[in-house]
Design a protein around this nucleic acid. Structure first.
Length: 895
DNA sequence: GCGGACTGCTTACCT
DNA sequence: ACAGGTAAGCAGTCCGCG
């Protein structure tokens, strides 16, 4: 890799100053392009020399037949296209020799076929080098496009017939034929999306900044104790994680479409209704609202920000052209659901108006809408990602709607509409539409552009374009960096069937019916109230196990006789002792970097706020990846699916927690509870904790630290259900009904009041007071329900997610489905994923959607039963009884 | 014909 | 399309009960 050393400020995002005019060819680059910008030349081909720019996207340009890299130059804030000029071509690998392949007529006559090459690859499954044929094609669609008759199908289909072998095509193998061409290009050239590149004399060269390279050396010194190979991996990861992010010039857009029926969403494929309003909210401070003039619509007097001017268009076509100017201009365009709605609608609408192909800036995919010039980020897809939702934003938003995500992350919600869209005045419509793009924009700008930077960092780790990484799941991210590593080390990327054929399935029996193998251990809790409880846990247990035990598809059940004695406890599997597995190295080095560098640095108060923010972001990104790194091996959707690896990881986890519990007990510590990777210790001494931690490091080679100390904790006899009060009075609630999000507000409020009472308890003696308070709370809410004194019906509503469309429930009809069906009958559109709000009523079918229910039909006793079961989980540990509290006599209870 | 014991389905949670 | 383990409520079924 050619790396020119540069200083950081050379690509800083400070805008260039205007200077006195010079002849064009003498102009510094920045001014040349500013001039060029006025011309909107397309495609924006990178000049022979382009200053440091961020690799933000990659694709295949069908017209030019070349890989295309999109570079974002941060000074001019423009995108430049760099086309491959190395002659790289798409290909697949096969075990047939060129001689055998030549007999396949359909292959030789295929217009996309180019030539054969013989290449040697390392096959990790058999631990041998093999020679395979590289079948090179002229264009990626020839390898494996949508159309039938592509090379990857032809080879296994036609070979046996040609060779007269009948149907025995099972040993004909094709590899690496399903990799997207631009990914293949990235891997083969070991490019790093998200990193800084410059074009020098037409060549794409990665930029090295001496200041950052020194930082990387500093990081590497922290890992002196690790092996040579580990250190190389650490260095490569650290480079990806240390380089800075640019300022992203971007615009969020949102469109409004007139509808016949207010409850129905217009079909973006039809695009039959007019676009009446579009808002743009951009990083350069631009706030625009484009409105279509319509007959009979009043100006209105809704308030808009002072710096917004309404732009009126007499024709919809002109309005769409103005929106397209935005899409041709901004390097990054942000939408919320633009893939399925906004951009798709605009594209089809433009086609209806007879726009020419190259006038439309939107590239239509089956499930995505991309931009010809810049990068489109659809935040709906990004926030929909379960890993992002849970690990990056700790479940703070619940529904993936602009309103809920906005409320949870930036405290900004949509405008409430009082009447149908078509009846709004211009200013009301503008206000509503602008708010949507404002939320969309701010979701990418809060916390110093956290979301944009997160996408950039994930693009670097996963070696994917920003568009793809923001739309795909964590298993794709992991697969892609593993694929890239295979190519770097000249390893054959195995097919899933090959792995399965050699390594087989699982050997243990899961506790849950239908699962593939046995998982983690949950320790039976010791019921009651316990003071001074230390919670210790293993620092990222599963990634650590994968590292320490050398787990990966190549090492589990390896072909070597001498490794068969290296057995995974509680399984018949063995692990390789001779060769290090790729996954073990990759995941292990990422884990080490997070635990030993990024996590401590993210809390280091001696660092500036900005630097700490970056470290926080990086450690969060690593957490997302590491948390999924074990699960993917047990997921059939993962390309390197290898069930014995997942099974071995879980088995070693069980072994680990079992051993640590035994050791704790030997040290005389009572273990109150434990789950997967954690143990709850009753009143341990400093020495006991030290000893346990040291023993774990020495014997298990795993880090065990105190995660938190509870002033006291409350356990019932239920697993995954407890409550702990931290030193600062924070109440940690796990799994209890009172914290579940589907329960009615009124019950949640009662539970919150109880939490407040428990937070005030400092000593065992304080408990008496707290118990009295809790009894009062319970009596209070009980009476309120009995006397039907709730404020609104909303407070009684259960909110349950509809997992599937109502008609898909054939085995049973749960209550929320009944409520959903009632709504459907009223003409409300219901689809999978909707949140159904319902109350419990006396009459059949005992449920009713909140909006259809009235106060007097509520089944109060059902709510009291719910209140009881919610509190029971805590009360029995406190030695209290719900019925006694509400003053029910023994006889009444018996009745 | 009814009610209790049981199983299975569904959702929300924990690590 | 990362995994398995647990709790809770309800729907539906079976079976005994003169």
């Amino acid at each position: 890799m050619t790396q020119k050393q540069r200083r950081l400020d050379e690509f800083s995002s400070i805008p260039a100053k205007k200077e006195k005019p010079v002849k064009e060819e003498e102009m510094p680059f920045t001014q040349q392009v500013i001039k060029e910008k006025e011309k909107y030349a397309f495609p924006p081909v990178a000049p022979e020399n382009l200053p440091p720019s961020f690799f933000v996207s990659a694709t295949y340009d069908g017209k030019k037949g070349k890989a295309l890299i999109k570079l974002y130059e941060p000074k001019t804030q423009r995108i430049y296209f760099w086309y491959d000029n190395t002659g790289h071509k798409p290909y697949l690998l096969t075990n047939l020799s060129p001689m055998e392949l030549e007999k396949i007529d359909r292959l030789m006559r295929h217009p996309g076929f180019d030539h054969f090459e013989l290449v040697e690859k390392y096959d990790a499954l058999t631990d041998r080098n093999i020679v395979v044929t590289k079948v090179v094609a002229k264009d990626p669609l020839a390898i494996g496009g949508r159309a039938r008759g592509c090379l990857r199908d032809i080879i296994p289909e036609d070979y046996p017939k040609t060779a007269g072998l009948g149907d025995s095509s099972e040993n004909v193998k094709v590899w690496e034929a399903k990799i997207k061409y631009y990914q293949c290009y990235i891997y083969d050239n070991q490019l790093s999306p998200g990193m800084i590149y410059e074009v020098k004399d037409g060549k794409l060269v990665q930029t090295a900044v001496s200041e950052i390279e020194r930082k990387i050396e500093e990081i590497c010194r922290v890992f002196e104790g690790e092996g040579k190979e580990e250190k190389e991996y650490i260095e490569r990861w650290a480079r990806l994680l240390e380089y800075p992010a640019p300022k992203f010039r971007r615009a969020a857009i949102d469109i409004e479409v007139l509808t016949d029926v207010p409850t129905r969403v217009p079909d973006p494929r039809e695009a039959a209704q007019p676009v009446i309003c579009v808002s743009v909210y951009a990083s350069d401070g631009n706030k625009r609202v484009l409105l279509l003039r319509r007959r009979g619509i009043r100006e209105g007097n809704a308030r808009l920000p002072a710096d917004v001017e309404l732009e009126f268009y007499d024709s919809e076509e002109a309005l769409i052209r103005a929106v397209f100017d935005v899409l041709w201009d901004y390097p990054f365009v942000i939408t919320f659901n633009g893939d399925d709605f906004d951009l798709r609608y605009l594209r089809h609408r433009a086609e209806r108006f007879g726009f020419k192909r190259d006038e439309i800036p939107i590239e239509l995919g089956r499930r995505v809408c991309l931009l010809k010039y810049g990068v489109h980020i659809d935040l709906y897809k990004f926030f929909f990602n379960r890993s992002i939702q849970i690990y990056a934003f700790s479940n703070r938003y619940r529904d993936i709607t602009l309103n809920d995500v906005g409320r949870a992350l930036i405290e900004l919600t949509k405008f409430k509409l009082e009447k149908p869209l078509g009846e709004l005045s211009y200013t009301e419509l503008a206000q509503y539409c602008l708010r949507d793009s404002e939320i969309t924009f701010k979701l990418t700008s809060f916390n110093d552009d956290l979301v944009m930077k997160l996408i950039l960092v994930l693009a670097r780790i996963s070696r994917m374009p920003m568009e793809d990484v923001s739309r795909q799941g964590v298993s794709r991210w992991i697969r892609n960096f593993m694929h890239s590593e295979h190519r770097r080390k000249n390893m054959l990327i195995p097919n899933m069937e090959d792995i399965l054929a050699v390594k087989g399935k699982t050997a243990t029996t899961a506790i849950i019916k239908g699962k593939k193998y046995k998982g983690a251990i949950v320790v039976e809790p010791v019921p009651g109230v316990h003071f001074n409880v230390a919670v210790m846990d293993f620092a990222s247990l599963y990634p650590s196990i994968i590292k320490v035990w050398n787990l990966g598809y190549q090492s589990i059940l390896c072909p070597h006789e001498e490794c068969k004695s290296n057995i995974v406890p509680d399984t018949p599997h063995w692990v390789c002792k001779k060769k290090r597995a790729l996954e073990s190295l990759l995941i292990g080095s990422l884990r080490d970097l997070r635990v030993k560098w990024y996590k401590p640095k993210s809390k280091d108060k001696t660092l500036s706020e900005d630097v700490r923010n970056w470290y926080r972001l990086v450690q969060g990104a690593l957490k997302v990846i590491l948390n999924a790194s074990y699960g993917v091996f047990g997921a059939e959707s993962f390309d390197l699916y290898c069930p014995p690896v997942a099974e071995a990881t879980a088995a070693i986890g069980r072994h680990t927690i079992t051993r640590i519990i035994k050791k704790a007990e030997e040290l005389g510590i009572q273990v109150l509870y434990g789950d997967t990777d954690s143990i709850f210790l009753k009143n341990p001494t400093e020495e006991q904790i030290m000893e346990l931690s040291q023993w774990s490091e020495r014997e298990l080679k795993l880090g065990l630290d105190v995660d938190k100390v509870y002033r006291y904790s409350v356990f019932s006899s239920r697993k995954k259900n407890y409550l702990g009060v931290l030193e600062d009075g924070t109440v940690d609630v796990k799994g209890l009904t009172g914290k579940k999000r589907h329960i009615p507000v009124i019950i949640k409020n009662a539970f919150e009041e109880m939490k407040a009472a428990l937070a005030r308890v400092k000593t065992p003696a304080d408990f008496e007071e707290a118990k009295k308070e809790i009894c009062k709370i319970i009596r209070d809410y009980y009476m309120r329900l009995k006397k039907r004194q709730w404020e609104t019906l909303e407070d009684l509503a259960f909110h349950v997610v509809l997992g599937e469309a109502p008609e898909k429930y054939v085995k049973t009809t749960p209550q929320h489905v009944k409520a959903a069906t009632l709504l459907q009958k009223r003409g409300v559109e219901i689809k999978a994923g909707d949140l159904i709000s319902f109350v419990k009523v006396v009459k059949e079918p005992h449920v009713k959607p909140v909006e259809l229910a009235t106060n007097n039909e509520i089944d109060v006793d059902k709510y009291i039963a719910y209140l009881r079961s919610t509190f029971d989980q805590v009360l029995d540990a406190l030695g209290l009884d719900f019925d006694e509290i509400i003053g029910m006599t023994k006889l009444e209870r018996f009745m």
